[in-house]
C-alpha cells in the first residue's frame, strides 16, 4: 500500500537528510531513524522510515536459504 524506495543518504542537515535515488534527490525527514551520510535508507512520502541492513546484498540469499530449510 505504501510506495517506499531505498536510497542513500548524501548529507544530513539538522532534522532533514538529502537522500539520493540513482540521481534523483529528495529532502527527507530523518527524525525517526538516526542516519549518517552513506547509509542506505527506506524513504516513504518524504520521510525516512528505516535504515537498511548493512548486509543487504546477502538478504536475498538468506531468504532462499530459509525457504530451502522449510522445504527440507
Amino acid at each position: 500500500m505504501c510506495v517506499a524506495l531505498p536510497g542513500r543518504v548524501v548529507s544530513v542537515d539538522g532534522e532533514y537528510a538529502q537522500v539520493d535515488f540513482e540521481g534523483n534527490e529528495v529532502r527527507a525527514l530523518a527524525g525517526l531513524v538516526k542516519v549518517k551520510p552513506g547509509d542506505r535508507v527506506l524513504v516513504h512520502a518524504g520521510c525516512i522510515l528505516q535504515k537498511l541492513a548493512a548486509d543487504e546484498a546477502d538478504s536475498m540469499e538468506e531468504i532462499f536459504r530459509e525457504i530451502g530449510e522449510e522445504f527440507a
Binding site: 510506495v3 524506495l5 535515488f21 540513482e22 540521481g23
Partner: peptide, 12 residues
C-alpha cells in the same frame, strides 16, 4: 534510463 526508473519508483 536508470534515473528515470528510480524516479518512477519514487512516485509509484
Amino acid at each position: 534510463n536508470p534515473k528515470v526508473r528510480s524516479f518512477a519508483g519514487l512516485l509509484g
